[in-house]
Amino acid sequence: MESIFFFVVAAVAVICSLLVITCKNPINSALSLVMTFFCLATFYVMLDAPFMAVTQVIVYAGAIMVLIIFVIMLLNVKAETVKPNTHAVLAGSAIGIFSMFLTVWFLLKGSLTGATGSMSPQSIAKTGHIEIIGKALFTDFLLPFEVTSILLLVAIIGAVILAKKRI
């Protein structure tokens, strides 16, 4: 039952990500990307990580993609005219395929299959995974967490300074 569901969602995810790069209209591409994010969120739910799923939808589908669509609308990007840019396409696909093989190779070479960490489904269910994420963020990963937020702040200020002539 679960595996049938997985394959259906996986098929939708693959089709949508293909549509992202094949759609001629940029808005339709962006919508396919939203759909792909949704499928990813579904995978998170199936992995018992609803918090990750919801964050995925809020951040990627709800915020980032809205901004991208906003930009597309404001710039009024028309449907892409197909340019025969075969060299770039060839090089890109070669790099993509190479890195995919590399990933699979490393995965098969290492001893990751079947290895278990300190967490188990039981221990996650006991403390609750939001609590676990929160604790990890504010204790072990406090510095990276704060540095990330400062980075975002810098980005915001930079964007304002670039966009506004007089402040």
Binding site: V57, I58, A61, G128
Partner: peptide, 15 residues
């Protein structure tokens, strides 16, 4: 167990 966030996520899709 993330009900409220689920609602926020759906609200953000309405846009």
């Amino acid at each position: 167990n993330v009900g409220v966030l689920y609602i926020l996520a759906m609200a953000s899709l309405g846009v």
